[in-house]
């Protein structure tokens, strides 16, 4: 992690927000593909929307496909240790994970 210079802090905050919204859109599109849902339905997902363990469509193979699609479309690598129950349990958890990975990448 590097420390951002003070004079660009404001700019960085807005860039980060843009990145988060971009990640949100991309992640919802991947989930729509994996679950076979319409974009409008996935757009209603909130941070609390339950994923793995809540949606029967998300079996282990579908989750593996979801993670591989995230790597391909969002441009980062997901390690074994990254995958835990918390990250997969809710949409908010998955989005936060993806956003952090993108910032680090």
């Amino acid at each position: 992690m590097c420390t951002q210079p003070a004079q660009t802090e404001e700019h960085d905050v807005s860039t980060q927000e843009e990145n988060l919204s971009e990640t949100d859109t991309a992640l919802k599109s991947i989930i729509a593909d994996v679950l076979g849902l319409e974009a409008a339905t996935v757009n209603e997902f909130t941070p609390e929307t339950g994923l793995f363990g809540h949606l029967p469509e998300l079996d282990s193979m579908a989750v593996a496909g979801l993670l591989t699609e995230m790597e391909d479309r969002l441009g980062f690598i997901i390690e074994d240790d990254d995958v835990d129950g918390e990250m997969l349990e809710t949409y908010g958890g998955l989005l936060e994970f993806a956003h952090t990975k993108r910032v680090e990448a």
Binding site: D33, V34, G36
Partner: peptide
Amino acid sequence: SGLWLRAEPG
């Protein structure tokens, strides 16, 4: 979308 991503055949 790629239908192989789904849990069930579609």
